[in-house]
Simulated scan of single mutants.
Amino acid sequence: MGRLSLLVTSPRVAPGLMSRSAWYAVESASARLCRDLTEPVVDAVVESGLSVDAVGEELSPPELARLLVDRSRESDVVWLGSSDADPGLTDAIASEVSRLETPPEVEMVVGSWDVPGSRLLDAVAVMDRLRSPGGCPWDAKQTHESLAKYLTEEAAETVEAIESGDREHLAEELGDVLLQVLFHARVAEDAGDDADRFDIDDVAGGLVAKLVRRHPHVFADGDASSPEEVEEAWARIKAEEKAERSAR
């Protein structure tokens, strides 16, 4: 009796960066099957030198489940999951297996998973879609100046949410503030003048550098053992940075 392994990966992680157990399952299987050979994870497997066969493109979930279970009754089969998560397939496989007296072993193999902050990539992608040709005409015409009032409004509403104690509302308002950050960064990315151009990675990179620079007691050999000492060091470093900018 064989085994059916259902490979699940995160679309936010490079497709070849899979766990050791996932690669072992893929490499040791007698057959590697997928719905679409153009899927990124399939491409990564093929690039590694392994063969993958496309099946079930026109099959319904129950039909595909029957095919996969039948193939795995005699040998180990890996199903390389689609980016849409193959709606209905796992339920159909469970139903198909339940009707057999001696079903194959079925396992879910997690090849990769979202890391903290990975949904920020989705937010960047959505903003890119809105500002790109064929996106939203309102979003496409906005400028730093036209958006300025919304940044002020969203910041004020965030403060109100904090004061209200409603944490669900706070999460929503923080999302609105994040939208303004993404929006302004994308507007800057689209700037015609190179001197005015930056993108969301520049914003994030600048923030990381600032946080590291102003926390020498964490990232270097600085000494600050109390919140008051941290505030004092922050103000001093900030003043030094301002003086350096003025001297340029």
Results as ranks from 00 to 15, higher is better:
57 E>H: 03
121 L>M: 07
232 E>T: 12
51 S>L: 09
142 Q>L: 07
209 A>K: 13
203 V>W: 02
218 V>R: 11
232 E>L: 10
52 V>P: 11
180 Q>E: 07
10 S>R: 10
23 W>T: 03
4 L>D: 08
110 V>R: 14
127 M>E: 10
37 L>Q: 09
41 V>D: 00
78 V>I: 05
190 D>Y: 13
235 A>C: 12
90 T>G: 13
220 A>K: 07
123 A>V: 13
164 S>N: 03
88 G>M: 12
94 A>F: 06
5 S>T: 12
151 L>H: 10
25 A>C: 10
207 L>F: 13
163 E>W: 04
73 R>Y: 13
50 L>M: 11
3 R>D: 15
1 M>R: 14
189 E>G: 13
109 V>R: 12
100 L>Y: 06
90 T>R: 15
15 P>E: 06
120 L>V: 05
242 K>M: 00
14 A>S: 05
3 R>P: 14
93 I>K: 05
243 A>S: 08
18 M>I: 08
134 G>C: 00
204 A>Q: 07
89 L>E: 01
30 S>V: 10
116 P>E: 06
69 V>Q: 04
221 D>I: 01
248 R>Q: 06
224 A>V: 00
236 R>A: 12
190 D>E: 15
66 R>L: 01
163 E>A: 15
106 V>Q: 02
109 V>A: 07
112 S>A: 03
189 E>L: 15
44 A>K: 01
201 D>A: 13
175 G>Y: 07
131 R>C: 08
212 V>N: 00
218 V>E: 11
177 V>R: 05
5 S>W: 12
8 V>I: 07
70 D>I: 03
240 E>V: 09
173 E>K: 11
